[in-house]
């Protein structure tokens, strides 16, 4: 866990509302694992006050990239950042994806900006020689953030790209691709999608990890602001510290 000012190398627009910020951050790059996040101060001002949490989207050499959707004031400020600007970043934070299990095929399920942590995860899975299938869905083709990964299938709610339907429909429609394989599922997206994925994996008895989003203040366990209820005990986990990645069986969304 480090807290530093980093120089922004690039701000690349992806869709109307999404962009990628890349910083030069050797120590952060070295420490980061797929599924972890950073808590970013969008400016030196007291308004907005709190940091904003973002998945680490990609690590390449000493470069760290965040994929960000504009949803409010804080992300709006980040969208305007330019090469050479500084960014105060706290991270890496939380517990990332478990990729050391004995599975052969990784099924990645992304909804909207939920695709953010997957470029980094794909790189690591490739290093391990795993087969990877990415199911990537969005509301429409304009909002779809395609990773242009060779094994990527898409869906949109309005059918403007890929299958018409949501990403769980897409998964269902392509069961033959993985049904007889030793798979592990990785999901990231909005809560309704994650809930549907929990059900799907529970019914199909598939090992599944999901990355969960929450409002949070500190990002490292001191504010206790980001609880998610345990599935087995009468207690809350903290999304920032115990997560953001959980086994889908372990939490109640």
């Amino acid at each position: 866990m480090t807290i530093e000012n980093y120089v922004i190398l690039r701000n690349k627009k992806l869709t109307e509302k999404t962009f990628e910020l890349t910083i030069d951050a050797p120590e952060l790059a070295r420490l980061s694992e797929p599924g972890q996040f950073c808590n970013i101060k969008v400016s030196g001002e007291l308004i907005p006050l709190l940091r904003r949490p973002f998945s680490i989207s990609q690590v390449s050499g000493t470069e760290v990239t965040f994929m960000i959707a504009v949803t409010g004031t804080g992300t709006g400020i980040l969208a305007k950042k330019q090469t050479g600007d500084e960014l105060n970043v706290l991270g890496p934070l939380g517990k990332g994806f478990g990729i050391d299990d004995t599975f052969e095929t990784a099924i990645l399920i992304a909804g909207g900006i939920g695709v953010a942590p997957f470029p980094f995860l794909i790189n690591k899975l490739k290093e391990q020689g795993k087969e990877i299938i990415l199911f990537n869905g969005a509301r429409n083709s304009a909002e779809l953030i395609k990773l242009n990964f060779e094994n990527e299938l898409n869906s949109t709610d309005d059918g403007s790209a890929g299958l018409k339907g949501n990403v769980i429909d897409l998964l269902h429609a392509n069961r033959k691709l993985f049904v007889n394989k030793n798979v592990k599922v990785f999901g990231c997206g909005p809560h309704p999608m994650l809930k549907a994925l929990q059900d799907y994996c529970s019914t199909g008895n598939l090992n599944c990890e999901i990355s969960v989003e929450s409002n949070m203040a500190c990002g490292f366990g001191i504010c206790q602001g980001c609880p998610v209820h345990s599935a087995s005990e009468d207690k809350y986990y903290l999304i920032c510290k115990d997560g953001p990645v959980f086994n889908s069986r372990d939490i109640i969304l």
Binding site: L50, A217, G225, D234, K235, Y236
Partner: peptide, 23 residues
């Protein structure tokens, strides 16, 4: 104490609201 269910925190102008519930 288990504390309150989510959402527990939200930012407001120049501040934040919390209802952690003494977890």
């Amino acid at each position: 104490r288990k504390g309150n269910p989510p959402q527990r925190v939200v930012e407001t102008t120049g501040g934040m609201l919390n209802a952690i519930g003494l977890a």
